[in-house]
């Protein structure tokens, strides 16, 4: 298999979908992380602050997940069908978790009784955690390979449940938590921010450990992965990735300690880590949409579908990014934990 890329429409759509999924992870990652952090911030006042920091933007963040799913169906319909069937329990679990944590944004303020209030807090925290784990396991199940016969899934119903997928679930959950922490490094201040910082250092240990384990396990899952990572010429492309990951991880820890940089630096570094992990995955998977056997070209929609959507995406995505950025800008600035809670 050559690493050469000819930029046909299928490649463009593969890159666009990867970009959509990356934007989803970058954005919804931090608000799912906020939900996971509910587990370690039991006080109502802290929890209000956590939720308020993402309330105006979470809805838009989650829309990228719909684009990822809808885009996969449109651009690679065969892959969508196979993947959703193979990962049926995981996907259903993720959807139900997203339902629970999504409504908690509203219901938390509406509940009358203490029990109900705690219930929706638990739904927000638990739903966020389960969604993150399910997404990580989905990724893991994809990376470890999915058995296909003809145009349909041919594996067993529990193939998605392996030590590797569990590890990936943990890695993604830790990563989302880190993004949530970095978001709060931007949005919070004072004593609260100091507590967040301490959690940041703890989560960093888990995250780096998980990234190392996933990276060590991945090349041994599928033969081609090993070739990509340890044989020439793949090595030339792949070698810088772990080195950069190590550098960014060190910088992230240092910035969380406050050794350098402004509020935005930890977030930028954490996003950089995610980007590198995406790149690493790309090196392993390319050009398969469903490893080990289904390439993007085999699963691609016909050219007429690709062109029709590309016109829309080309015009609309910049506009969407524009008003999304505007919405973030409107709700910019610090949260003061003492303001409004006397």
């Amino acid at each position: 298999m050559s690493l050469g890329v000819s930029f046909d429409l299928t490649v463009i759509w593969a890159l666009l979908l990867v970009a959509a999924v990356y934007i989803y992870v970058a954005l919804d990652g931090f608000d799912l992380g906020i939900g996971i952090l509910y587990a370690v911030f039991p006080e109502k006042r802290d929890r209000d602050l956590l939720m308020n920091s993402v309330a105006p933007v979470w809805d838009g963040n989650e829309t990228w997940l719909v684009l990822g799913g809808g885009g996969l169906m449109a651009a690679f319909p065969m892959a969508f069908g196979i993947l959703m069937t193979a990962l049926y329990p995981l996907i259903i679990l993720m959807l139900l978790a997203l339902v629970l944590r999504g409504v908690a944004f509203e219901f938390r303020w509406r509940a009358q009784s203490r029990v109900a209030k705690h219930g929706w807090d638990a739904a927000f925290a638990g739903g966020s955690l389960v969604a993150a784990l399910a997404q990580g396991m989905t990724l893991g199940a994809l990376v470890q390979g999915i058995e296909v016969s003809g145009r349909t899934y041919a594996g067993g119903w529990w193939d998605w449940l392996t030590p590797f997928t569990l590890l990936c679930g943990l890695a993604v959950a830790a990563g989302y938590t880190m993004l949530g922490i970095c978001w709060l490094m931007i949005k919070s201040q004072g004593a609260f921010r100091a507590r967040i910082r301490r959690w940041g250092l703890r989560v960093a240990v888990v995250l780096v450990g998980a990234i190392v384990l996933v990276s060590l396990a991945t090349p041994f899952l599928v033969g081609t992965y090993y070739m990509r990572w340890f044989a020439w010429p793949g090595l030339a492309l792949s070698a810088p990735v772990p080195i950069l990951v190590a550098v960014l991880a060190v910088l992230l820890v240092q910035s969380l300690r406050g050794r350098f940089g402004g509020d935005w630096v930890p977030m930028a570094l954490a996003q950089g880590l995610f980007l590198l992990c995406f790149l690493g995955l790309g090196i392993s998977l390319w050009p398969n949409v469903i490893p080990p056997d289904v390439s993007i070209w085999e699963a691609a929609a016909p050219e007429k579908s690709q062109v029709f959507m590309l016109v829309g995406a080309g015009i609309l995505l910049p506009i969407i990014l524009g008003y999304t950025a505007y919405a973030y800008w409107v709700f910019r600035g610090k949260i003061d934990p003492d303001e409004g809670y006397h």
């Binding site: 885009g71 169906m73 449109a74 319909p77 969508f80 196979i82 007429k304 959507m309 829309g312 008003y323």
Partner: peptide
């Protein structure tokens, strides 16, 4: 989804792009 995806998939993608966002 596999069989009708090339036809209905783009329409749903347009829904996300023009409306959901």
């Amino acid at each position: 989804s596999d069989l009708a995806g090339p036809v209905v998939g783009p329409l749903m993608a347009y829904e996300v792009l023009t409306a959901f966002f």
